[in-house]
């Protein structure tokens, strides 16, 4: 044993500091204010025809398995099953048939939403996720221990994991093509390839204005809801659609509170426990000890008389 009392106290202090730091910085970098500088994406679901070229381009841009020619993506049989992004597909398109016969189906491209205050970032115990000043939420594989709490936490269920990799498994998700957009005039691969321009890349504030003007100018075509404007506190990726989002596979129960707020109350109680508990417990100990001493003294006094000794309490 090499731990001495001083180390022990240092350790205790470290735990306290860890707890206190948690409370004070429970909301990491992002703030509630929407940054004017954040970049974002707007997907217009009324325009998408489900060609899935974005899936093809995404694989190429992200260095994923890219052996299928783009023509193979015309295969519509994939729409028979509802898919989700995974380690080899950072984005997927699902098709939702219309209830009214003759009406066109709605095609829905999904991927990481790039939240303002990402649940994944607040969940990560090694701070592997960060919200960049540019808008994308990025993941750093070099510190990830693979607890997958980010996947538990994500309100949109987007992060995927390479479960088949025994030695370097990692979380995989859309980066909004961070490398590409960092270059002058660069665009995310999906937006660039989209033949119908259903995906628009730009400043998030401009995209919001664009979405509003679309809804205002064609109220019959669009429902009055910009998904991502407020969902989970707001996201950089937004959607407009001709149908309620609940019918298109979107979660409508995520609320408008940023997810990190959900654990804030708990984390701010941590320093309280760290300061109050020792006082209460040491108080209880002092009280017990004192009572024992009194009982002991009484015993000695009683040694000559007939008084009985006091017994401990039985719970």
């Amino acid at each position: 044993m090499t731990v001495n009392r001083r180390d022990f106290l240092k350790l205790a202090g470290a735990a306290g500091i860890a707890g206190a730091a948690q409370a004070s910085s429970a909301r990491a970098a992002p703030t509630n204010r929407v940054s004017d500088d954040w970049m974002g994406m707007l997907t217009d679901l009324t325009l998408c025809e489900g060609c899935r070229k974005c899936e093809w381009a995404c694989r190429g841009a992200n260095g994923l398995t890219h052996d299928q020619p783009i023509d193979d993506y015309d295969d519509k049989s994939v729409f028979e099953q509802r898919r989700r992004p995974d380690a080899e597909n950072f984005t997927v398109v699902n098709r939702f048939a219309s209830e009214r016969p003759g009406e066109n189906p709605t095609n829905v491209k999904i991927q990481c939403m790039h939240c303002f205050e990402p649940a994944c970032a607040s969940a990560c115990l090694v701070a592997a996720f960060r919200k960049t000043p540019e808008g994308p939420v990025l993941y750093d594989e070099s510190v990830c221990i693979g607890c997958r709490y980010c996947m538990m936490a994500c309100p949109f269920g987007m992060p995927a994991y390479t479960y088949d990799d025994p030695f370097s498994p990692a979380v995989k998700k859309c980066t909004m093509c961070f490398e590409r957009i960092s270059k002058e005039g660069g665009m995310p691969a999906c937006a660039e390839i989209c033949p119908l321009e259903a995906i628009t890349f730009g400043k998030r504030s401009d995209l919001l204005a664009l979405a509003r003007s679309k809804i205002e100018s064609e109220p019959d075509k669009y429902i009055d809801h910009i998904y991502g404007e407020k969902e989970a506190g707001g996201t950089c990726w937004m959607y407009v659609a001709g149908k309620p989002f609940g019918d298109l596979g979107f979660r409508t129960d995520v609320g408008t509170t940023p997810y990190p707020e959900l654990t804030k109350g708990f984390l701010s109680a941590v320093p309280l426990v760290l300061t109050v508990w020792p006082a209460l417990l040491m108080g209880a100990y002092a009280f017990t000890k004192h009572r024992e001493q009194l009982a002991h003294a009484e015993d000695e006094q009683a040694a000559n008389s007939t008084t009985t000794s006091e017994e401990g309490i039985h719970g």
Partner: peptide, 30 residues
Amino acid sequence: LGRPWRLPYPMLVSYGVTSVMFLVGWHVAL
């Protein structure tokens, strides 16, 4: 854990102080 050999990372390498999991990790270790 995907990479169990990185178990000490939250204590030594990178600190995700906004995470409840960080609290769990530290406290279970202590």
